Amino acid sequence: MTKSPVLLAFGGLLAMAAGIGIGRFVYTPILPPMVAALGLTKSQAGLIASANFVGYLAGALLAALRLPGTRRTWLLAALAVNVACLAAMGLTDSLSLFLLLRLVAGLASAFILIFASALVLDRLAVAGRSGLSALHFAGVGTGIALSAALVSTSSDWRAMWFASAALALLASLAVVALVPADPARAAGSTEPHRPARLSTRFLVLAAAYGLFGFGYIITATFIVAMVRGTAEIAGLEPYIWVMFGLSAAPSVALWTRLGVRWGILATFAVAAIVEAIGVAASALWITAATVVLSSIFVGGTFMGLTALGLIAAREGEGDPRGRIALMTASFSAGQILGPTFAGYIYDLTGSLAGPSWCAVAALVVAAGLCVAIKR
């Protein structure tokens, strides 16, 4: 078992890569060939994406409870479930099973995020190396980039799921060696705590966080499908999601550092506007330049905004777990609504421009709410 803070943070990176970067987001580059092979409608594709986010919401709320066993036990179990769900996606063509598997995978990804972060960030804080937390969170973008590069080597959607499962398995095995046991702490905290007070400021912040969840997820779900569906830039398909992941990898370090300088709420507002510009770029017209801009701006902000929102939620009186759970619920509600809404509108109109403009509006309102809170 590792005792080095750097190796521990790297273990966290691999856990986040397996559970979030691969387990949660590999659906985006696999979606176009799945749609082509199975004749799925955009609304069905959106439902599959939303099922994953429903599972994520359920997992986040469950992980906040007092659970038996250690945090490491739950982390490793969730990593195993994640790998199994990825592999099973390539073994069926049933929409009902797709929905079930992505639901369970979403629950597992929430457990991985919460328990890996608890294990790694606690130890880094004790070691006085909290700055390495950015390496831990870089796992999301790293997993997105690596899985995108891997699946681009095949045109068979089933092989893509199997390859993703194999990559997640390798990362998970490394986590076993790099993230040590935590026998002193149970999965659910037993420490007494004062209930969190939900101020008007917090409720407005939670609303902004939900709007952010809606605002980024439409582009994050359908950008590869947009590229494939536009003949002039279809050649970018193998690269656009890799670019998205590479933009995400350093984003937490960048935006949290700016948060220290400008203030968390001001930085959240700026990042939301940058993300809105990225979403708008793909809504205005689909060209090589606009999808590259969209990939960089949305990929380079969504994890930073996620971190900034949770940092802001920790501020206030009482135990922060209740506030973080409510923030997660609001964020998840936006993510659940986004792909389903976009899919149904596409089936009616043949375009994702309308849903994308709704996403732009949501992000602008989220930025405005944070400015209002700050003032």
Score class of each variant (00 low, 15 high):
153 T>G: 14
131 G>D: 15
146 L>W: 07
133 S>H: 05
92 T>M: 01
106 G>D: 13
217 I>S: 04
170 L>M: 10
93 D>R: 07
137 F>C: 07
233 I>L: 07
89 M>T: 06
172 S>A: 12
154 S>R: 12
136 H>S: 02
104 V>T: 08
160 M>S: 15
104 V>M: 08
114 I>W: 00
97 L>D: 11
152 S>L: 10
201 R>V: 03
229 G>M: 10
100 L>T: 14
181 A>R: 15
111 F>Y: 11
183 P>Q: 06
141 G>E: 09
197 R>H: 12
157 W>H: 07
112 I>A: 11
114 I>K: 01
221 T>K: 02
167 L>M: 13
225 A>Q: 13
95 L>K: 10
136 H>K: 01
190 T>G: 00
170 L>D: 04
201 R>C: 02
214 F>Q: 03
176 V>H: 03
128 G>T: 10
107 L>G: 09
111 F>T: 05
181 A>Q: 15
168 A>R: 11
134 A>K: 07
94 S>R: 11
147 S>A: 12
220 A>I: 01
100 L>M: 09
127 A>F: 13
112 I>P: 14
128 G>I: 07
226 M>G: 05
90 G>Y: 15
200 T>H: 00
97 L>T: 14
168 A>D: 13
127 A>G: 03
227 V>K: 12
180 P>Y: 00
202 F>E: 10
143 G>A: 08
143 G>C: 09
89 M>H: 15
186 A>K: 03
175 V>L: 06
229 G>F: 11
103 L>Y: 15
208 A>T: 10
196 A>R: 09
202 F>Q: 13
133 S>W: 02
96 S>F: 01
106 G>I: 09
190 T>S: 00
